[in-house]
Nucleic acid binder design. Structure first.
Length: 448
DNA sequence: TCTGGGGTCCTAGGACCC
DNA sequence: TCTGGGGTCCTAGGACCC
């Protein structure tokens, strides 16, 4: 917590709906709901006119329609939202080098580094923030923003929520706890339904109640990170810096289908398309990743994921697709699937050109064809390590991809190998990871 | 015929290494 | 021969945010 109110949080009001109303004058003053319009859609944003009828974010579109049948229901136009967001973020960056976007419609700005603002008194930051809000209106063509300014990120975010829409709240330093203690625990970012219920079970409803618990009690109740974090936030203790550069950690694509899927061949082809999309986005960002994860939500809403990790990062759509499809093989989809998704994580900002080019100096070129008289490459590895029974290999399956897992020791024949099998004529087979420990197998498996 | 999509962070258990 | 502890990586799941 700083001694001055120098952290600003800006939140564009009902952002997606406001962009639609700006671009289509006939929608102004009317209820507008942006989100999925299908049977399984949910609301992303409701205009304030729609909120009067009880329409809320994350509500199913079906329910929103029954609450407000005369609203305009629109699917998102994300390029328009991105362009408007960019204009706002550019404006904020012209004010301070330290801007941390949280999403398309929200950002923190560090006023300690703000251009042309040396008076960080309450009056000083109030005037600055009011000016900023009117400039947001200018660069967005009339969109309003709610702003909070306080001595920490936490309080600034709480403050921006207090006078929505089109409001400004500055929390004078020293008054943070007066504001916070009477509020419900759910004002704390990170306290959602599950945490509210856990806290309620021990009689805690307000931030003031939370104050009465020791850190040990909170850690026991909520776990180490969450417990310790809440213990601090309940005391308005928050020293987190405004971080302008945040690295992407994962890229994913998922889809919920209008009717549950039961055809595995169709599932595989949808997964392949998603994998290609993910890889395209990775390449567009100059990223590649080692871990491929699929997500499956069954008809009953139970959700499972399966993942596999490569020895080096990839942005190759065909490879991501093969791994994704292979991961699906292991999953029971009886009863149908409502959602499929593919993601890549473990990101690096580089792509390894070729597998197995980073061996120890002096080791033979692993991509060189092996001695034709001996069992070679992965087939030998599978054969000789006795791993065949564990891999799901069957006659007629070819090894189409193999690579070392982490921990492979060059020349030792020891480590972890991932192999994917494929039958000659049909669909991809399973991927199996298995341990190998056989000094005779000093050669890495060749790609076939 | 309830319940999106794109993310982040955390936890817990097992493998493995030193 | 037995015991063991810490650290890291991986997988799966869950809570949460906008």
């Amino acid at each position: 917590m700083r001694s001055q109110a120098s952290v600003l949080h800006l939140d564009l009001d009902a952002f997606f709906a406001a962009v639609e109303q700006r671009d289509k004058p006939s929608l102004r003053g009317k209820p507008v709901v942006v989100g999925g319009v299908g049977n399984r859609g949910v609301v992303s944003t409701a205009s304030y006119e729609a909120r009067v009828y009880g329409v809320r974010s994350a509500m199913s579109t079906r329910e929103a329609r029954s609450r407000c049948p005369h609203a305009a229901f629109l699917t998102g136009r994300f390029h328009a939202y991105r362009a408007t967001s960019q204009a706002v973020m550019d404006l904020l960056r012209s004010c301070s080098p330290l801007v941390e976007p949280l999403s398309l419609d929200e950002a923190f700005v560090d006023l300690e580094r703000a251009d042309g603002l040396d008076d960080l008194s309450v009056d000083g930051v109030t005037a600055y923030a009011e000016d900023l809000r009117s400039r947001v209106r200018e660069v967005t063509g009339g969109l309003t923003a709610s702003v909070g300014v306080a001595s920490s990120k936490f309080l600034a975010k709480v403050a921006s929520d207090l006078d929505k829409p089109d409001g400004l709240v500055v929390v004078p330093p020293g008054t943070e706890l007066d504001l916070l203690l009477p509020m419900k625990v759910s004002v704390i970012p990170g306290v959602g339904p599950a945490t509210v219920e856990r806290l309620r079970s021990v009689g805690v409803r307000t931030v003031g109640d939370l104050h009465g618990l020791s850190e040990d009690e909170l850690v026991r109740l909520l776990g180490k990170a969450h417990g310790a974090g809440l213990h601090l936030l309940a005391r308005a203790e928050d020293d987190r810096a405004v971080e302008p550069e945040r690295e992407t950690k994962s890229v994913s694509v998922e889809g919920t289908y209008e009717h549950d899927l039961t055809d595995r061949v169709l599932m595989a082809s949808l997964l392949r398309r998603q994998a290609e999309d993910v890889a395209r986005r990775l390449r567009a960002s100059g990223l590649s990743g080692r871990t491929v994860t699929i997500k499956v939500r069954r008809y009953d809403f139970t959700t499972v994921s399966r993942s596999t990790t490569l020895s080096s990062p990839t942005d190759d759509g065909a490879l991501v697709a093969r791994l994704a499809v292979a991961l699906l093989e292991d999953l029971d989809t009886t009863g149908g699937v409502r959602l499929l998704g593919v993601g890549v994580s473990g990101l690096a900002d580089w792509v390894q050109d070729e597998l197995f080019t980073d061996g120890e100096p002096g080791s033979e070129d692993p991509t060189e064809p092996a001695d034709a008289s001996a069992p070679t490459g992965t087939e030998a590895l599978v054969e000789e390590s006795g791993a065949r029974a564990r891999t799901g290999w069957a006659p007629g399956m070819d090894v189409v991809h193999a690579e070392h897992g982490p921990g492979w020791v060059w020349g030792s024949g020891r480590g972890v190998v991932t192999v994917r099998f494929e039958t000659a004529e049909t669909a991809p087979g399973p991927v199996r990871t298995f341990a190998v420990d056989d000094p005779a197998l000093s050669r890495p498996p060749a790609l076939t």
